[in-house]
């Protein structure tokens, strides 16, 4: 493919040909401008929008975070005091721990499951299209609906989860009272929604693996598991890296599921002892419940930095793997 895309030096821009004589120098300038400038013009809309809706708020948030900014508006410039307070705030570290914890609890089984589902779908089955569409269905469901339904499943008194546990003689679990149980419930919601999406990405990557490799492996006596480990996984590594990075970013921004899971008027605190409060919930609580905008902005910037850090770690791992 690449050879076709190489610009051919032999063919001059056809537009120049019919314009004769007089306006030549100006035309030349215009066409040079056109060639040098128009690509930038074409990508400009994105960067303009990014500057207005991405860069500017980012900068403004940084500016707010350096002030004592409350409900009555901008107060004194306080330098890094908000950040200093943040580093000493146990609730922030708790929220960060919860977020990273749920990230691991949700992502690891999700990707493993997605891999298994994808390899099951990557063979001749009946009703293939139906199955492939089916695993993608959860992604169309609204997060709020998922949150509400799963909150009822993980209800302490009348929930289905406790009902099933009761059948095998396990005492009812108060899902919101402990870290482990609330993390598990919330991770289930995340996984239910995203496993199908990830397995579709894996499936696409798997379809690109040449069949001969499997045939050769089969001739050499490799079983299904061995084929998965030695052929499939190494061959779809780029897809795996992509899903890991996108799951990491999504996991750092986890908000709606725990918020709906929390219930009650004070759900933003994520449980009586902040068992499942994520960093984005913590930010929202500080900025929009306590109206401490300066502090909330400092939290927002810390989330940004943590995501950057995680992405950088991902990036270096990827580079080493190459």
């Amino acid at each position: 493919m690449a050879t076709h895309l190489r610009p051919s030096t032999a063919a001059p821009p056809t537009r120049d040909a019919p314009a004769p004589g007089a306006h030549r120098p100006r035309e030349k300038l215009l066409s040079r401008l056109d060639r040098g400038g128009s690509p930038y013009l074409f990508i400009a809309p994105f960067f303009l929008l990014f500057a207005v809706f991405g860069l500017y708020p980012l900068g403004y948030t940084a500016w707010v975070s350096l002030h004592d900014w409350t409900i009555s508006g901008k107060g004194d410039y306080v330098g890094l005091a908000n950040y200093r307070q943040l580093f000493g705030d146990p609730d922030f570290w708790n929220a960060l721990g919860n977020t990273l914890g749920m990230l691991v609890v949700a992502t690891v089984p999700q990707l493993v499951l997605a891999l298994i589902v994808a390899s099951l779908l990557n063979q001749q089955l009946r009703a293939m299209t139906f199955l492939r569409l089916g695993i993608l269905l959860p992604i169309v469901t609204s997060v709020a609906a998922v949150g509400i339904v799963f909150s009822q499943i993980f209800d302490r008194d009348a929930g289905m989860a406790n009902g099933l546990l009761g059948l095998v003689g396990v005492h009812p679990v108060d899902w919101r009272a402990d870290k482990w149980s609330s993390w598990l419930a919330i991770s289930t919601m995340v996984d239910w929604r995203w496993t199908g999406y990830n397995s579709l990405i894996y499936l696409a990557a798997m379809q690109a693996i040449p069949r001969e490799l499997y045939e050769a492996a089969a001739v050499d006596g490799a079983g299904r598991i061995r084929q998965l480990r030695s052929i499939t996984v190494p061959m779809i590594r780029p897809a795996v890296i992509f899903t890991v990075i996108s799951s990491t970013i999504a996991g750092m921004q986890l908000f709606t599921e725990p918020l709906i899971f929390g219930q009650g008027p004070d759900a933003i605190s994520g449980g009586s002892l902040r068992q499942f409060q994520t960093v984005s919930m913590f930010m929202f609580e500080k900025a929009f419940r306590n109206f401490d905008y300066g502090y909330g902005s400092a939290v927002a910037w810390m989330i940004f930095l943590v995501i950057m850090l995680l992405t950088a770690i991902n990036f270096f791992i990827v580079r080493r793997m190459k």
Partner: peptide, 10 residues
């Protein structure tokens, strides 16, 4: 039973 939770409503 938390107010406004499903079990509260029920």
């Amino acid at each position: 039973i938390l107010s406004y939770s499903p079990q509260w409503n029920a």
